[in-house]
């Protein structure tokens, strides 16, 4: 009934196609929604509860795990280590991806080949990329051979340290971020840019006043996604980093609690802290996005891709 009333009230062009009236629509959603509730929401809540019951589960709720984490410099330091990887890497990744996607927004030579090649690190996954980086960037790898031939006295250490993890994260997340932004930016109606140019705007003004307000909300989401992924870094930090020292990220700390010390309560607490860190990053970006989006005026056109 509601549909009919709405259809009668709406202008003709906006009438939505009639929905099928028979059958149980919501019933079709039950299996999948139930699955996510049981396998995602419930474990998450259980993890929060478990983190508040330190030891063998006797006694009431307590924040002892959280206190222990923040008061132990070896553990608390992982937050700083994770941030020192995640923040610079996210900024670098998004800035470069944004620049490349912006310049490539109307196509580029060999575009399909390039975008296909860029899918490779996403599809192959972190473990293979890490192994490749250990070889290629390693002390005996092709890059250092090239640098030695170019006249460098000693090979540079690019793996099993902070730099290695930065390279691994960049190789993994630049294509991801770039493809996201390319899909987004090339969906902006070219007529807007064209109109601005016809009216005499210089390239910088076109970017600053026409396209940036449209791109900013998407760029903010891309930033948030890359930050959240960077904050949870695990395999790269172990395989190309120094998991016992310079790149002992918070995910490594959580894993060690769970599978080396078998302290699931403490591990859950660290996982909750990790999730909270990601949430804080997400909220900051979304708040900034709200301010950016307020300046956007033009509308989106039909996507090319």
């Amino acid at each position: 009934m509601r549909t009919e009333a709405a259809a009668a009230a709406a202008p003709l062009a906006k009438v939505r196609p009639a929905r099928r009236l028979e059958g149980a629509g919501p019933a079709l959603l039950v299996p999948s929604a139930l699955y996510v509730l049981v396998m995602f929401v419930y474990p998450f809540c259980y993890g929060v509860y478990l983190s508040l019951r330190p030891g063998k589960g006797e006694g009431g709720l307590s924040v002892a795990n959280y206190l222990a984490f923040f008061l132990d410099p070896w553990q608390a330091r992982t937050i700083w280590v994770t941030l020192s990887l995640a923040v610079p890497n996210t900024v670098l990744t998004v800035l470069l991806a944004l620049t490349v996607a912006y310049v490539m927004r109307r196509g580029i030579w060999l575009e399909r080949t390039i975008t296909t090649l860029l899918v490779l690190p996403i599809a192959l996954g972190t473990v293979l990329v890490a192994e490749g980086i250990n070889g290629f960037y390693g002390p005996k790898g092709w890059l250092n051979q090239l640098l030695l031939m170019a006249g460098l006295p000693d090979p540079i250490r690019l793996t099993h340290n902070y730099t290695g993890v930065m390279i691994a994260l960049f190789v993994q997340h630049f294509p991801f971020c770039f493809l996201m932004l390319l899909g987004y930016i090339s969906g902006i109606d070219p007529a807007l840019e064209h109109a601005a140019r016809v009216l005499g705007a210089r390239p910088w003004d076109v970017f600053r006043r026409v396209l940036w307000p449209l791109i900013a909300p998407g760029a903010a989401i891309a930033f948030a996604l890359v930050f959240v992924m960077n904050f949870g870094v695990f395999p790269s930090a172990v395989l190309v980093g120094q998991p016992a020292g310079a790149t002992r990220t918070i995910a490594i700390a959580a894993y060690q609690q769970a599978f080396e010390h078998y302290d699931m309560s403490m591990a859950s607490a660290i996982a909750v802290i990790m999730g909270a860190g990601q949430l804080v990053g997400l909220i900051i970006v979304l708040l900034l996005r709200g301010r950016l989006a307020a300046t956007g005026v033009a509308t989106m056109g039909a996507g090319k891709r």
Partner: peptide, 15 residues
């Protein structure tokens, strides 16, 4: 959206 390491540990604990 949430990285797998974050919810993987509580999920693994449960399973």
């Amino acid at each position: 959206l949430i990285p797998q390491m974050t919810y993987g540990i509580p999920l693994a604990t449960t399973l």
